[in-house]
């Protein structure tokens, strides 16, 4: 246990050092690409958390991502300051998740139907926002722009100081720092009583309710946290491109999130982050070559993982590491046992 905590702390410190050093080691283009990866990894974490630890498979995590993105864009244009816009990008998707979760969990909608409903919800949002072209669809100063989206969204500024717009390096620190902060917060949450109860509900809902826990409420809270995190990721994404359009709600992205989590490893927090960055890296490399179709490669990778590493990358690596560790410990203990016998002088009995 202590070894594991120490290893996790070391990994965390290394990650922070790498994030701090990245702007000095990488050129601007790579740094901006990594900023996108980090923003999307926050989205991957939101699904990894609710699916891997709450047992809630949402096919429509993009609904909250998109709402966060649009909430940020509309608020930033109206307020001219990104600070309240970011808060709104967290609060609005969380409130929407609370509403959706209340009706589905308390309505005893089964898991499969829940997944279908979330998928439908994100497609409805896609179509609604897609059809807001024209000048009559505006919220305050912000025109929603239909399928063209909203260009020239103000990017992040220093808190409560709209004049101090963040440079790309600073945006990298914000995105990567948010990723680390969300990761650490979710890890702490999972170590708390609430997190342990949430995992218990995922393991066996009937038993949890027979112990006196209300599975509906627990799942609702997990789902709302997931929605808030996805919304925050939406704000980071819009900040990255200074632009938002309805594809943020689309089917392609909502499917990709599931692929990230599946490849990285369900039931871990680091898995979705690794899976997300890995897949995006592969896609962007293929994209620059134009020799292969990225979706084809992505499909092949997914099939390969499902067939060969069904538990995903990180759980498999962890398994190999523990196996190797226990084998080493076994060899070591045998070695010691042998020496203990040898230490005893012959005929001591």
């Amino acid at each position: 246990m202590a070894v594991k905590t120490a290893a996790q702390l070391t990994a965390l410190i290394l990650a922070v050092v790498a994030i701090a050093a990245a702007p000095m080691l990488l050129d601007l283009f790579d740094l901006i690409e990594l900023t996108l990866f980090a923003s999307m990894a926050v989205l991957a974490l939101s699904l990894g958390f609710i699916w891997g630890f709450g047992g809630i498979l949402s096919f429509g995590q993009t609904a909250f991502f998109g709402l966060g993105g649009y909430a940020y864009a509309v608020a930033a244009i109206n307020f001219g300051d990104s600070t309240p816009a970011i808060l709104l990008a967290i609060a609005l998707p969380a409130a929407f998740a609370a509403l959706l979760g209340y009706f589905t969990f308390y309505g005893r909608v089964s898991d499969v139907y829940f997944s279908v409903i979330t998928l439908t919800v994100t497609l409805i949002l896609f179509n609604v926002v897609n059809s807001t072209a024209g000048d009559e669809y505006r919220i305050g100063d912000a025109a929603l722009g239909g399928f063209n989206g909203m260009p020239a969204v103000p990017t992040f500024n220093m808190p409560f100081d709209p004049a101090a717009v963040l440079e790309p390096e600073a945006s990298w620190y914000v995105a990567a720092g948010t990723l680390v902060a969300v990761y650490v917060l979710l890890r702490l949450l999972l170590a708390s009583s609430f997190g342990r109860i949430a995992v218990a509900v995922k393991e066996n809902e009937v038993r949890a309710s027979l112990l006196g826990y209300d599975p509906r409420l627990i799942k609702l809270i997990v789902f709302v946290i997931g929605g808030a995190v996805a919304g925050l990721a939406g704000a980071l994404y819009v900040n990255w491109g200074a632009f938002v359009n309805p594809t943020i709600f689309g089917l392609a992205l909502s499917a990709q999130i599931i692929i990230w989590v599946t490849i990285g490893g369900l039931g871990t927090l680091i898995g979705p982050v690794v899976g997300c960055i890995l897949v995006q890296y592969i896609v962007s490399r293929i994209g620059t070559q134009q020799t292969f179709n990225a979706n084809l490669i992505l499909g092949a990778v997914l099939i390969g993982f499902v067939l060969l590493l069904p538990r995903g990358l990180m759980p498999t690596l962890q398994h190999i590491a523990t196996q190797a560790g226990s084998r080493l410990a076994y060899m070591f203990s045998r070695d010691n046992a042998g020496r203990a016998i040898a230490d005893r002088p012959a005929g001591a009995e």
Binding site: V199, A200, E203, N204, R207, L210
Partner: peptide, 10 residues
């Protein structure tokens, strides 16, 4: 319950 209803993974 009749069939053991426990948290098998924990």
């Amino acid at each position: 319950t009749q069939v053991p209803n426990v948290f098998n993974g924990l």
